[in-house]
Structure formats: structure tokens, C-alpha cells
Write a protein that binds this DNA or RNA. Structure first.
Length: 290
DNA sequence: CATGGGTCCTGAGTGC
DNA sequence: TGCACTCAGGACCCAT
């Protein structure tokens, strides 16, 4: 599930494409091109030079020399590959972009959820991009601003953090990790978090994302970088997919529950329920979260 | 506007 | 052992 650290890892690996032209574009699966038919898509891209590659949330943006943009979203199972011409074509390869350097950019997607969108200059893009919230590392988002953002939301922290219009780039893995690190329960209504908790959560979000980027992403299955190399962040995760195992902070068993329709990993001792005054039977002396 | 539910897709996992 | 079934997940669209 590519989230901000995975998409950023891919973006950095693709920076070598800046300055190259797209000489030919082959759409194998039409469904992987959104908002235009494959032929229009092909004609819109061929001959264009890639000037820059940016990231916004989980979107990759290829800035082209006519000021149009090639958008790419990997959703859960999308993968970009940087290939040499002779490399074998893997199953579920849906789009091939032949570059002036002789390299080839390939899009593969097991689930068919992600894909490309071509945006003319000035096109705000799909709703999710147009209404996307601030980047987690935006220096304008400080403790006070983040607290004010949370106060406007009645939904759970889990649902709020997953909402890309609240903040860009977080997904299921890093939300669970950030909430654990901030010692906040995923079911806590966002507006109930006090200023100190908001500061703790913002710091935790930045910590888990920064760690993810430094380890080149989390691989649990399909995610790799553009050369097929898996990320190395999985061993640093504290709660995600660790249900049934002891909490690394207090030893309580990590549980998997359902919050905002998503599988959610929580330490019942470190992350206290907001309403129910359920109290742990065991008290670990040195880990009071508040 | 914020919120929640259905939808897309298919490999992995579960149950019989 | 094999088959049928359900589920997971991010963003979009829609209804409330």
C-alpha cells in the first residue's frame, strides 16, 4: 500500500527521468487511463519532455514541457518500473512509456485501482488532488494550526487522518503507527484532542513518515521501488500487523480492531479508549501515556 | 461542508 | 485435496 514514504521513494528514484522525452506511449489496458481515451492520452504525451517530477500526497506529478501534467496514483497495488528495453514484460503490465534515454517506464497494477490522468495546464485534476490537505511537513502546520484543524473534525482520529483532505499522504500503516507513537486511541473523536496531544500527534506523524522515507518505504507484499528493491521499514513498525504480539513498549498484546472501516492496530494499554473507562488490569509502572 | 457507505479488482485466506 | 466464498485496501461518487 504505497503511502507518502513509498511514493516519495519512487519519486526520488525517478528523478533521473527529468529532461527526458516520452518518445512513445503504449496503453495495454485502457482502464488504467482516467478521464481520456487511450489514443488521446498517447497523443497528449508523445514528444513531450519531462521537466520535473513532484509529489503531492500519494500522487506523482510529471511536469511536462507544455505545462501539462501527467498524474499517477498507485492506489494499493500499482507499481512503476524503470526498465531496459529487453527486460521481460511482467504480468499485469498495463502502460509502457518509452523514453529518449532508451529506458522504459512501465506501470503494473494487480488490482487495477490506480493509473494515470493527463491534465492540461490549469486543470485542477480529480477531486482528491484539488481538495487535498496540507503536506505533513508543511512548516505552516505547527502545533497550534494542527490543533485547530483537529477541532473542526467530529470523526475519529483514524478516519480523520486517513482523509486526504485533512492531511495529505497518510494511509493505514502510518496512521496506526503515528497514533501508537502519540499514545492516542484511534477511536478518539478528533476534536477532543487537546493542544498538547495535537502537538504529540503532529510530531509522531512526522517521525513515522521520516523514518519510512529513510528506510525507503514499508514492504508488506508487493511494494518495491522502481528497480524491484523492497523497502526496509517494516521491522521498525510498532503495531501494524503485530496483532497477537506483545507491545514493544509495555508488553500488552497488540489487538486488531475495526475503526472507520479499516483494520486498525492498537495497544489497549498504551492507547486508552476515549469513552469507556476500561482500565487495564495490569499496570506497567513506567509507561503512563498522559 | 463533513460524514459514512458502496464501488472498483483480484490474490490470499478461510470454511466446508 | 479441492472448491466456493469472503475479505482487504485508497479514492471517488453519492446520499444524508
Amino acid at each position: 500500500m504505497p503511502e507518502l514514504p513509498e511514493v516519495e521513494t519512487i519519486r526520488r528514484a525517478l528523478l533521473s527521468l527529468e529532461g527526458q522525452r516520452m518518445e512513445a506511449v503504449l496503453v495495454i489496458h485502457p482502464g488504467m487511463v482516467k478521464r481520456s481515451d487511450p489514443e488521446t492520452f498517447r497523443q497528449s504525451l508523445e514528444g513531450k519532455r519531462i521537466d520535473a517530477i513532484d509529489r503531492r500526497g500519494k500522487y506523482l506529478l510529471f511536469r511536462l514541457d507544455d505545462h501539462s501534467t501527467l498524474l499517477c496514483h498507485l492506489m494499493m497495488a500499482g507499481r512503476l518500473w524503470l526498465n531496459d528495453p529487453g527486460d521481460p514484460i511482467l504480468a499485469h503490465t498495463h502502460v509502457r512509456i518509452f523514453l529518449s534515454s532508451g529506458k522504459e517506464l512501465r506501470y503494473q497494477d494487480l488490482r487495477h485501482f490506480g493509473g494515470f490522468t493527463w491534465l492540461k495546464e490549469g486543470d485542477p485534476g480529480p477531486q482528491g488532488l484539488a481538495t487535498m490537505g496540507p503536506e505533513p511537513f508543511d512548516p505552516q502546520v505547527d502545533e497550534g494550526a494542527f490543533h485547530a484543524m483537529l477541532k473542526r473534525r467530529k470523526a475519529t482520529l483514524k478516519g480523520t487522518l486517513l482523509d486526504q483532505s485533512f492531511m495529505a499522504g497518510l494511509g493505514n500503516i502510518y496512521v496506526d503507527e503515528a497514533l501508537f507513537e502519540a499514545a492516542l486511541h484511534p477511536e478518539t473523536p478528533a476534536f477532543r484532542v487537546n493542544r498538547e496531544g495535537a502537538g504529540r500527534l503532529l510530531l509522531a506523524i512526522r517521525n513515522v513518515l521520516d523514518r519510512g522515507i529513510r528506510h525507503r518505504g514499508t514492504t508488506f507484499g508487493t511494494y518495491t521501488d522502481v528497480n524491484g528493491r523492497p523497502g526496509e521499514n517494516a521491522p521498525t513498525l510498532q503495531v501494524f500487523r503485530r496483532q497477537g504480539q506483545p507491545c514493544l513498549r509495555c508488553g500488552e498484546v497488540i489487538r486488531k480492531v475495526r475503526v472507520a472501516g479499516r483494520g486498525t492496530h492498537v495497544c489497549p494499554n498504551c492507547q486508552r479508549q476515549p469513552k469507556g473507562r476500561s482500565r487495564p488490569w495490569k499496570t506497567s509502572s513506567s509507561n503512563t501515556p498522559h
